[in-house]
Design a protein around this nucleic acid. Sequence first.
DNA 1: ATTTATACGCACCAAAAGGAGAGTATCAGA
DNA 2: TCTGATACTCTCCTTTTGGTGCGTATAAAT
Lengths: 141, 141
Amino acid sequence: MQRLHTRSAEAPLEKTERMIPDVVDPRVEALVHELIGRVADKWTMLILETLEEKGELRFTQLSRDIGTISQKMLTQTLRQMERDGLIKRTVHAVVPPKVEYRLTDLGKSLGAAFCGVWIWAEANLAEVHEARNAFEQAAKA
Amino acid sequence: MQRLHTRSAEAPLEKTERMIPDVVDPRVEALVHELIGRVADKWTMLILETLEEKGELRFTQLSRDIGTISQKMLTQTLRQMERDGLIKRTVHAVVPPKVEYRLTDLGKSLGAAFCGVWIWAEANLAEVHEARNAFEQAAKA
DNA sequence: ATTTATACGCACCAAAAGGAGAGTATCAGA
DNA sequence: TCTGATACTCTCCTTTTGGTGCGTATAAAT
């Protein structure tokens, strides 16, 4: 994986880099890990998916659509996503309050990136379950 | 996202499904969520990356390569990945013990699926940091 | 005889994640 | 006047996650 994405996402190689082995700057690596840890989170992924599917949504609509999320986690995750530039939060100064959330372009691009993982999960559900059964059987024997 | 992956990973549409809106069976959705939650985990992703890069590795080699993982988490995550069919664990009956880990085809395919996310993270590091700074500024004002 | 290396399992503890429920401001409608 | 709706925040509590240190079998090396 290292090899695959290192080249593709970086600026083109410069001459001075020629002899340097395929190792990423550890600081960059740390940042990437932090970012992935942040973003590859259950709630973030569900919100991302819901907003991608439904477009612009209000707080309680999101809550209902996701169904399994608590208010606390929803607020928390939305704030974090807003902070990271993944969603835009629009407050309408009315009463009762009205707040709408929608994906930014950055958010949409992340959704697209995760698409491969969703596809993988759907395509390999059965295989994983077979593996689990096989593992249980082997454990008994 | 729903729309994108629903069609691509499922069996071709049958006639009786024509009028059914683009909604996934909630049980399947729950399974997919569980599986993604399982697999989109920090340690799993790091082990996946390391094994993809280095091929077959022993326990302590993995531990050293990842650097920040505790023995407990390494064992735990490796077991889980083995259970899910992502890695193959080979025990050599020698003393001191020798155990080698390598990715299965399923594991490799997951690595490939995550590739998009790694690329996204690398490509958008700067943008996320700008967004964070902007958010802080806005919070102060 | 003692140390070393390997790949763990186990017990204990700290930190983080997450859920439940109550509280808040405000206005519209019954 | 009382209720309801909205989008939260705050506190308290439980669950999960993760780290640390210790123990173990065994043969080779010192």
